[in-house]
Write a protein that binds this DNA or RNA. Structure first.
Length: 407
RNA sequence: GCGACCGUAGCUCAGUCAGGUUAGAGCGCCAGGUUGUGGCCCUGGAGGACGGGGGUUCAAGUCCCCUCGGUCGUCCCA
């Protein structure tokens, strides 16, 4: 009996991995072009970091963490999200100045697996720490927008503002009161959450409190929050980014304040359709024991994005077939200049019949099949064929796949 | 965490309801034939202790219990 991978974990291998490589490369290039530098934080941290950062009442922390003791009895947890670790790293290096960092890596949550929901899943994300400006919010959203469009995820952007310490308190109080009044309309699992985390109920699909009876945070925004949200909207309008304001968009993590946003994939039929989400977390640094530092960022789930936009499987550029005593090691010489020219080149490693090699070529979905017989190689693209010498291959490689160079 | 359905070759599945000779098909894979040196077609071959464990029975892929895994919904969130 072969040992299986644990529940909710997958292997991303060929042929699917080609698409992953493409998407992760796109992410690195795009986030880099926005001035976000790579950051790699620990995959496990002291449990306390997440309890304080994400919020002790949050289900992600209370029920969904992979928590274990190390050999000295300290409590560690696999990271369920990326922001807390980044903020911890920021504070650890002094807690001052501007940080614009991008990350990519696995996150872990002990949940019931489902389409688009795994126990180990892959997130990309950015954190812009040290700026309270609405321009930072806009920049981060612009990056998310461009990335999703590059990956090909059709989406809708929802935005909201949760207010700040000055104004959200009053809203929370009135919200609780309203929830208590219409507690009969709440779903079973949420009736006891009213006191603890009433915001949580806002994005529940089962709870049906009368929308008219619930206070809208917009009516509670202080002047500073109202201005900030207005600037964010102006910025998005200026960039031509379409969005819808949703009064019920609160996001699940405790650290958010002011701006929150969420991208929903419109092509996903499943219940797991949120593909990217984020917002501002001006109170997080203090929660973690540092001085107040503003910040804004987002995280996106690659697994879900690829569910929404699977893409196509890319094949080889050239498959070499050897005939007349031309073996794998000979083909390797012929492949070298092509590979140097940036092409993906393959051939059969085992000694096999010409027929079998051609079958392998077909299977590899290579655009060109190159038949190496002795002095030259006959490159075939469909019916077209072209005979080349070894020394010309590198040059041909750049031409063959560049429509500008091809006549 | 809760509920429903599912688990037989690499893949998609039939066989399970009415237990009974060496467990089947298609696709894929390998070899050969044909061919315009591969893609279509033809022939042959390899590959499965039926997710795992226990029980009932003369006999279990088939019935019962447990367990693990998958899918969907709920919950949660990316």
């Amino acid at each position: 009996m072969i040992i299986r991978s644990p529940k909710g974990t997958d292997v991303i291998g060929p042929p699917r991995s080609a698409r992953w490589r493409e998407v992760l490369t796109t992410w690195e290039n795009l986030s880099g072009s926005y001035g976000y530098e790579l950051i790699i934080t620990p995959v496990f941290e002291f449990t306390e970091l997440f309890e304080r950062g994400v919020g002790e009442t949050n289900e992600m922390v209370t029920k969904q963490m992979y928590t274990f003791g190390d050999r000295r009895g300290r409590s560690l947890s696999l990271r369920p999200e990326g922001t807390a670790g980044v903020m911890r790293a920021y504070l650890a290096q002094g807690g001052t100045g501007r940080w614009k960092v991008a990350y990519s890596g696995p996150m872990f949550r002990y949940e019931q697996p489902q389409g688009g929901r795994r126990r180990q899943f892959w997130q990309i994300g950015v954190e812009c720490v040290g700026s309270a400006s609405a321009a930072a919010d806009v920049e981060v959203i612009a990056l998310a927008e461009e990335f999703l469009s590059a990956v090909g995820v059709e989406n809708e952007l929802l935005i909201n503002s949760l207010g700040d310490g000055d104004c959200r308190g009053a809203h929370l109080r009135d919200l609780k009161a309203a929830m208590v009044r219409s507690i009969a309309d709440l779903c079973h699992s949420h009736r006891d959450v009213v006191e603890l985390n009433p915001l949580r109920i806002l994005d529940c699909t089962l709870c049906q409190p009368d929308p008219e009876a619930l206070p809208d945070i917009a009516d509670y925004w202080c002047e500073a929050c109202r201005d900030h949200f207005g600037e964010v909207r102006e910025g998005l309008d200026g960039l031509g980014i379409a969005y819808r304001r949703s009064s019920r968009l609160v996001r699940g993590l405790d650290y958010y304040s002011r701006t929150t946003f969420e991208y929903v994939a419109t092509t996903l039929e499943t219940s797991q359709s949120t593909v990217l989400g984020g917002g501002r977390y001006d109170g997080l640094a203090e929660t973690l024991g540092g001085r107040p530092v503003p910040g804004v960022g987002f995280a996106g789930g690659i697994d879900r994005m690829l569910l929404a936009a699977p893409g196509e499987e890319a094949g080889l550029d050239v498959f070499l077939v050897g005939e007349g005593g031309i073996a794998a090691l000979d083909l390797m010489e012929w492949a070298a200049p092509l590979r140097k020219a940036g092409l993906r080149v393959g051939f059969e490693l085992d000694a096999r019949s010409v027929k079998a090699q051609f079958r392998a070529a077909t299977r590899s979905r290579a655009r060109y099949v190159g038949v190496v017989s002795g002095l030259g190689v006959e490159m075939r693209e469909g019916r077209g064929r072209e005979t080349l010498l070894l020394e010309d291959l590198e040059k041909w490689g750049t031409k063959a796949f560049d429509p500008q160079e091809r006549l």
